[in-house]
Amino acid sequence: MIDGVIALYIFMLAAFTGYEVISRVPVILHTPLMSGSNFVHGIVLVGAMVALAAADTTLLRAIGFVGVVLAAGNAVGGYVVTERMLKMFVTAARKKGA
């Protein structure tokens, strides 16, 4: 479905997008942002599930299982800590306004 040059175009455009989106982030949000981007690459979960779904030997199932456990940890953990951190900024902003 995605092949050769098309994949390279996707790669290039995504690389520029990442650069542009991040370059406007203030320093104070760097830690939550790193955490947020950490959550985003948790999409690896989708790939790990596909790999485990296609596994047909015990070895492959074991590796795939570990992969899905790790990927789910990345996605869920990344989301939880990012949301916790960002909520604090909202509280601080409100206190400033009050």
Binding site: I2, A14, G18, I22, M34, N38, V40, V46
Partner: peptide, 23 residues
């Protein structure tokens, strides 16, 4: 993502890769 033909993984991974490099 390239290996699995998965555009979501390619885009999300690359965005994080370039953003993380900048950071």
């Amino acid at each position: 993502g390239f290996v699995l033909d998965n555009a979501a993984m390619i885009i999300a991974g690359t965005v994080v890769g370039s953003a993380g490099t900048l950071l």
